[in-house]
Design a protein around this nucleic acid. Structure first.
Lengths: 331, 331
DNA sequence: TTGTACGCGTTATCAA
DNA sequence: TTGATAACGCGTACAA
């Protein structure tokens, strides 16, 4: 593969001149610049990004470490990150941690090794970002917050929106409201559960552990939770569900049991999905601004890459309750 | 940040020994190896992947360039690629080309610059992989085929499965079958349209351009197509749809027009989705083995990275028609 | 404005 | 087995 020396030789100039001509830093004689351009074309020369990064001591690559690539919420974040990064000339290394601490750790270490410019992470309870901090790699968390929070965070008002969802269900006449929550320790899961309690409390309804099931965020978790909660002696008459893959599982079980959302059991789920209005009754959701969250996370990270000294910020974005018929008795 | 020299100095050995101790290539005196290990820990040393790649003249990073990160079909591919790559010690740079030639070209050039080990690509009609081939970067196409096909390809029997879907609709009594197809030039879109014609032809049904609408693969495309086809004088009584985001658009329009899938209009869509059984009637689909396609594409690429000389292969995987009620008059 | 020469942090070669 | 040293390909002082 052609190197800068080959170009220099063919153009009859020094490598320094080639470098300058290509990077347009210093001014070079138009005649020489032209010779360089020709030589580049003739040789099909492409600068070696590795050598360049090594020399410049910086990379134009971000890592985005998310819990599940197949969850539309996270892919929307990814698109937001990617669009923003791309516009700034950065690439994005998408890492699927798969809710798996070991995989996440490998990715964190790879990010350090490859000297990536920064990392956007949706952390789990056992996330360890110390390798990143130790090497001064900027970190921004998205969706979830880190216990040892010494970095920027982009969050959603999960607690408030969960409470609002519960209040909505109560207003619609549901009284025995259950909660399908994510695993303990995951900050959004905990926050939504807190909001759920807040909502009950505000209406003087009593909280019961029998109405709560904590499970994985995927379809299987939703199935498991629905089966468990709905076969109890005194089952809930409504459910707050903590994500769209979970909601798929819950809705499947309801169908199998012959329960109709809305009429038989009120349903509100986190995350807007394209099929929300295709099912009958349509699904009431708490829509999180995933794309905007990704954009903001990327902007914060790029910002911090440019200025490492800025104090950490924490931004909370508002989710929006979209009322449809799955939370209405006559839906 | 600590370098290999720092480690060498602290351990009282040469950098060569440190390198050998860390890479376990040659055998080193256990005593020295131990001193190195301590020094590494004490300094929090992490090898510089850039310098290593530069010296070794190879990278352990693949690029996956796909048309749309928010399309579940592609994210399933991505997961297959990622799992396989990860197991082999490779990272995956996920690039969202967004059905946009310019973005794709930037990514292709970045792959060359960064000397990535290989590229997996779902090409558009104007994809240009010459920069990759020119630099001997291995390429595997997935889902779609490249005109100038000098690389491995992982495909689906799109034409046959489209024909099978049409035969199924005919067997269910639909006679005026329409097709919502992707943009011209995209090989899967063209193949599915060919299969659609095959299916009609086998049943001696006449093909009419009035029954075909070509549009983008996203929700908006599906909406546009459905509106157009269903407001014609003699509208279709069934539709073959070329992907799940498209299907969402089509189904929305049907709902708005008060048409019930199955009874009023038979529907078969490409790509299995988790919500297929949640809608009423449940959606008949042509399920493509996306995850397996991703796995295979990654394996082929890794294989070719190891042995560039192997002749190009083309693998076709079978899609599966999953019959549900949206293609049944009494569904 | 241009060229020389050095260093970025590794790994590989070659002697010892 | 170990160490000194030369690349890998580029950017950039510094001198001309």
């Amino acid at each position: 593969m052609a190197t800068i020396s080959d170009v220099a030789a063919l153009a009859g100039v020094s490598t320094a001149t080639v470098s300058r001509a290509l990077n347009g830093k210093s001014t070079v004689d138009p005649v020489l610049a032209d010779r360089v351009t020709r030589a580049v074309e003739q040789l099909g020369y492409t600068p070696n990004g590795l050598a360049r990064s090594l020399r410049r001591r910086e990379t134009a690559v971000l890592a985005l470490i998310i819990a599940d690539v197949e969850n539309p919420f996270f892919t929307a974040i990814a698109r937001g990150v990617e669009d923003t990064a791309q516009a700034a000339g950065f690439s994005v290394l998408l890492c699927n941690a798969d809710e798996n601490t070991a995989k996440e750790r490998r990715y964190v270490e790879a990010a350090v090794q490859e000297r990536l410019a920064g990392v956007i992470l949706s952390p789990t309870p056992d996330s360890d970002v110390r390798p990143l901090l130790a090497h001064r790699t900027p970190v921004v968390t998205v969706d979830r917050r880190l216990a040892s929070a010494d970095c920027d965070a982009v969050l959603v008002n999960s607690r408030e929106s969960a409470a609002a969802a519960v209040r909505h269900l109560i207003a619609r006449g549901y009284r025995r409201i259950g909660c399908v929550a994510g695993p303990p320790g995951i900050t959004t899961a905990d926050a939504r559960l807190d909001g759920y309690r807040d909502g009950l409390h505000a209406a003087r309804l009593t909280y019961s552990e029998k109405l709560v099931h904590r499970c994985g965020f995927r379809e299987a978790g939703g199935r498991e939770a629905a089966k468990r909660l709905l076969t109890e002696p005194d089952p809930p008459d409504a459910l707050l569900v903590s994500g769209s893959p979970m909601a798929v599982g819950v809705l499947q079980v309801l169908a199998e049991m012959g329960l109709r959302p809305g009429r038989d059991i009120g349903i509100v789920s986190f995350d807007e999905v394209p099929w929300a209005t295709l099912i009958t009754p349509a699904l009431t959701v708490v829509a999180q601004p995933a794309y905007a969250m990704g954009q903001l996370a990327a902007r914060l990270l790029l910002d911090r890459i440019a200025d490492g000294a800025r104090p950490p910020t924490s931004t909370t974005m508002a989710a929006q309750l979209i009322v449809r018929d799955s939370s209405s008795r006559d839906g």
